[in-house]
């Protein structure tokens, strides 16, 4: 598999990878801090657990947004130069997957505004 193809596959699932990263971070941090009773710590006046969730959400959301825009532009550009069926397909699916991932990532950030950190 050439480097271009690897990049294409990664772009196709970029949003889902971003989600996986967000998920791992927020779950690991919450479990560790709550499990050890370290969650009372604050950073710059913010509680550490919700702050981690919010920042992880923002970062992964922005990354996914970038991926979505990029794949959308690839997808739109298809008219200018001839591309193979596989390329056009990958670009389109990438746009769809990254778009859906945006919603999913947001859903995972909601709890920071609703739930207490460790109860």
């Amino acid at each position: 598999m050439s480097g271009r193809r690897t990049g294409q596959v990664l772009l196709m699932v970029a949003g889902l990878i971003a989600w996986a990263v967000q998920f791992t971070i927020i779950y690991a941090v919450t479990s560790t801090l709550c499990g050890r009773g370290w969650a009372d710590a604050a950073f710059l006046g913010f509680e550490i657990v919700p702050m981690t969730i919010v920042s992880a959400t923002l970062v992964t959301f922005s990354a996914t947004l970038l991926a979505a825009v990029w794949s959308f532009r690839n997808h739109r550009r298809k008219g200018e130069q001839p591309v193979s069926g596989a390329d056009s397909f990958m670009n389109h699916v990438a746009t769809l997957i990254n778009g859906l991932s945006l919603v999913i990532i947001l859903w995972h950030g909601i709890s920071a505004f609703i739930l207490p950190a460790c109860a």
Binding site: V103, W107, I110, S111, I114, L115, P116
Partner: peptide, 12 residues
Amino acid sequence: SALLPYGLIVMR
């Protein structure tokens, strides 16, 4: 998007 926050509020 409506159900999830409602579920979380019930959970809270």
